[in-house]
Structure formats: structure tokens, C-alpha cells
Amino acid sequence: MGWVVFAVAFWLATWFLNAWIARGPHAQTRAAGLLVPVIFGVTVIVVWEALVRGLNVPGVILPPPSAIWVKLVSATDILWEDFVQTFVKGALSGYIIGCGAAFVTAVLIDRSPFLQRGLLPVGNFVAALPIIGTAPILVMWFGFDWQSKSAVVVVMVFFPMLVNTVQGLADTTTMQRDLMHTYSASYAQALVKLRLPAAMPAIFNGLKIATTLALIGAIVAEFFGSPIKGMGFRISTEVGRLGLDMVWAEITVAALAGSAFYGIVAMIEKGVTFWHPSQRS
């Protein structure tokens, strides 16, 4: 009972603390903007821990954060192996191939408005479909190892990336293109010096969407068959053995990997599109 009371009290206390900071004179500062969500996150973890202990929730339903942390530290080697298998081999290789292929396709069809008018609606349509359903087919074609995961990722990231790149390449004004024309720039020169740089914000938008899709694709594809390592494999087998602390540890790793991946792409974007209004503050 004490734990439950503590949880409620802690919740109320941090909530008032956050409300006080948010209403206070320093609400607009960077420190406050960082501190408030951190306090909220810590609150969630503390309340979780306290409620699990206070209400005697069995570990097979919801393990406390402390147990997850213990698992995270003690099973580092397994987690690392799974991370390499799923993220580095499966997701990353598929991400590079898929985004690269989409980019090349977009540049190739750029010269043909006819193909663009045809491919863009088809691409938009396909991007809204549950592409993850191709996973069983691709696993059947490419075998259980990372190649099939990589293939699923390629299929998943291709169309969002294609649509974004094509839209980005169209993102110049007539004035700018006319200027290139008066310089008597060739098609290639106009592409490299004007249209590709102008397309960068849209291209990075596609790249950022694709980071999450890549990780989801690699993990879910492992539910359809995989060698005895990988994050999706570990999640589905440990769930079956009710080893939920391991499952949560994998999810933590997946969350960290996903945010880090996104963060890195966003950082590259900041460097490449430093001129764009959304990056200047």
C-alpha cells in the first residue's frame, strides 16, 4: 500500500513542479524546455516501478524498470548480437539500398514528365499500403538470414523516398530555372547546382521517414522466420517464454537505436540544408 501512496504522491509532486516551471518566468529558456520532459519521463518510470511493486504485478505481465535495467546490463552480449543482426545487417543495408535506388530512380525519371505523372500517384498509393505484408513472401525468396530483412526494408522505404525526392526535384520556381537558362546551363549543371540542392529538404524528409520504417520492417520481418538471433526473433521467442524483462530490454534497445538513427539523419540534414528557413532560427 505504501508504494501506491508513494506513486500517487510522487506523481502529484512532480506534476506541480512541472506546472510551476511551465508557468514561471524561465519557461521559455532552453533549460526548462529540457528539464520539464525529463522530469516527466523520470516520473513515469518511478510511478511504474512503485505501482508494480505496490500492486504486486507479476513479472510476466509487467516487469519493473529496475528488472529491465538489470537485464539490459547483464545481457549486453546477446543484445549487441541482436542489434548487429537486425539493425546493422538488416535495417541499415536495406535502408541504404532502398533509399539509394529510390533516389536514382527519381533522378532518372526526372527528365520525363510523362513517367512522373504516372509514377507519382502509383508511388503515393503504394506508400499507403501495408507493405509489411510482403515480409512472408520475401522471407520465402531470400531465406531466413538478414538478406530477406534487408529486402523487406528496401521495399518499405523505396516508395516514400521516391515520392519525396520527385517532389523535391520539382521544388524550384520558374524564375530560378530561367536564371539557369540565361546562364546557358546544361541539364546536368542545372540539376547539380540548382535542383538537387533545392530538393535536399524534401529528400531529407523522406530519409527521416524511412529511418523508422527501416527498423520496423527489419524487426517485423523476423517474426516470419529468422536465424536464432535478431531483435524481432528475440522478442517473439522471449514473449513465448514469458521472459518479459528481456523483451523490454530489446524494446529499449530498439527505441534507442531508432532515435539515434533519426537523430543522426537529422544532424546531417542540419549540415546540408543550413540555408533553409526551417533550419535557421
Binding site: T212, I216, I235, I251, G258, Y262
Partner: peptide
Amino acid sequence: TIPILAIAP
């Protein structure tokens, strides 16, 4: 940015 789908199973 997190693959939440992993929690599904």
C-alpha cells in the same frame, strides 16, 4: 522515431 510495432507481440 521509435519502432513501437515491436511491442505488438
